[in-house]
Each structure stands twice: as C-alpha cells, then as structure tokens.
C-alpha cells in the first residue's frame, strides 16, 4: 500500500532523532568516524538519566579534543593524557557530580598510562570512556601502543614488529586486575545491536560514578578509517576481522 511520506513525517510518529544534548555544530570528525556514534550515546544517556546539570566531562588531547563543542554539558579540556588526574580533582571536590573522561588510545594508553592506572587503583568514582582504534588518528596515523601486530601505520609502514615495538597493550585487561575498578567492559559501535549494548554499558558506568562504587572503564573498540586508509564500511569489516581477535568484546569485571 502506498502512503504519502508527509503523512508519516509527523511529530507523534517520531522514533529516532539526534540527541537533544548534541548541538548543531558540524562535527570535525572524518566521515564514518566512531567518535560521532559514541558522542551520541553519551548525550542520550545523560539526557535519559536527567543529569545534564550534574555532569562534568573531561576532554582529552586527540581527535576528541573538541568534544566540548558538540555535547552541551560542562567540560574541562585536560593536558595530554591527564584527564583521569583532572577528573580525580573534579570528583573529589564535587562528589555529587557525575564525572567522566573521554579519551583515545594515544591519550589514555600511551602518555596517560600512569594517570589511568593510578586513578583506577585509587578507585576514583569516575567513568572512563576509552576509544581504542589502534592508531594515533589526529596526528596522521602513527603507531600507538594498541596498534595490532603486523598492522601498517605511517611510523611502521611494514607492519608492527613485536621484536622492535613490543606487543599491543590491552588496557582493559590491565585495569581489570587493579582493585579500585568496579566495572570494566569492552564494547564496539559498528552495528545497531552493538550500539545498544554500548549504550547500556555507558549508562552503567555513569550510574557507578553517581553511586560512588569505584572506577568504571568502558573501552570502545573503534575504527579510524582515515588512519587505516579504508572506507568507513571497509574499516568496520576490518575491525570485526582483526581488532576483535586481540580485543574481544564483553564485560571483564562487574562488581
């Protein structure tokens, strides 16, 4: 049966739209970048929990450095890798606030490893959103600690060599072992089903921050199609085939 499209497009029939807390600024991310999806999930969760006025986000250095331009909540921009240290101070001084950091793998897993592990070990009541795409996206696709073995980047054009560069660093497994973390999970945002699961994980992490249960980390295995030199669709397929073998999805810890 044919139905005129204007009869469907009415406010009462709305099932999905851009989150209210995401503003109209055009995002600087490359087409198909996972950051946009995670930004949307964070905006939706904050809106659904009704904690818009209680939320303070800590932005990283990396592509997501401009996160504060896109989600209308309070933000602080941290020096490279220092987001968990800033978040510690913010949460201790404002214990009623929901404090989260949003960091990439170049920020969290390289220069910020010490801050991350010690914030987790102290059990700071913050949520850490960790975007792991195995590469330094913003600076032009250099090798990161999380780069897979054999994966080609601009600083390892013949592929990462374990004898020379070491092994890919699995941060979620590391922080799972320290006593301060209450929730460590690894998710992805490449399909609608995965996106729904990732949203639930982000919500639980934010609830843990509000409840003062300890540190939560939600690692999101992501794509960097520009850095990987692939189309967005191909990058998602490559991630499923290669990244998930080293970075398997699922909850590592939930106490």
């Amino acid at each position: 049966m044919h139905m005129d499209i204007n009869e469907i497009i009415k406010p009462e029939n709305l099932v999905y739209t851009k989150p209210r807390l995401m503003n109209d600024n055009p995002m600087h991310y490359c087409p198909g970048c996972s950051h946009g999806v995670v930004h949307k999930l964070i905006a939706e969760v904050i809106d659904e929990m009704g904690i818009e006025e209680e939320t303070i986000g800590i932005a990283p250095v990396g592509c997501a450095v401009f996160a504060y331009n896109y989600i209308d909540i309070d933000w602080i921009e941290a020096a490279h890798g220092r987001a968990p240290a800033i978040a510690t101070a913010v949460k201790r001084l404002n214990p009623k606030k929901m404090v989260f950091t949003y960091q990439g793998d170049g920020d969290l897993a390289a220069i910020g490893t010490a801050e991350t592990i010690h914030a987790c070990n102290r059990g700071e009541n913050i949520a850490i959103i960790f975007i792991n795409n195995g590469i330094y996206g913003m600076t032009g696709g250099q090798m990161a600690p999380t780069t897979l073995e054999g994966m080609k980047t601009s600083t390892c054009p013949y592929g990462r060599n374990v004898a020379l560069n070491g092994y890919p660093l699995r941060i979620a497994e590391l922080v799972e072992r320290v006593d301060g973390t209450c929730y460590v999970t690894r998710q992805s945002v490449h399909t609608p089903a995965a996106i729904r699961k990732a949203k639930k994980a982000i919500r639980l992490a934010f609830e843990n921050s509000m409840a003062g249960k300890g540190t939560s980390m939600v690692e999101i295995v992501s794509t960097c199609n520009s850095g990987w030199k692939m189309s967005p669709v191909k990058a998602n397929q490559w991630m499923e085939e290669h990244m998930f073998a080293k970075y398997p999805l699922g909850d590592l810890k939930n106490v």
Partner: peptide, 21 residues
C-alpha cells in the same frame, strides 16, 4: 522505521518516523 540507520549515523543526520497501519 527500524531506526538502524539513525543509530549508526555518526553525525546524527537522520530522523526516523514510523506509523502502524
């Protein structure tokens, strides 16, 4: 009107409507 397109859109460009006939 399953909204799969809206969910995966990284830039929030998509609005989805649905009616039951």
């Amino acid at each position: 009107g399953c909204a799969s397109c809206g969910l995966v859109c990284p830039d929030g460009c998509i609005t989805v409507y649905k009616v039951k006939l």
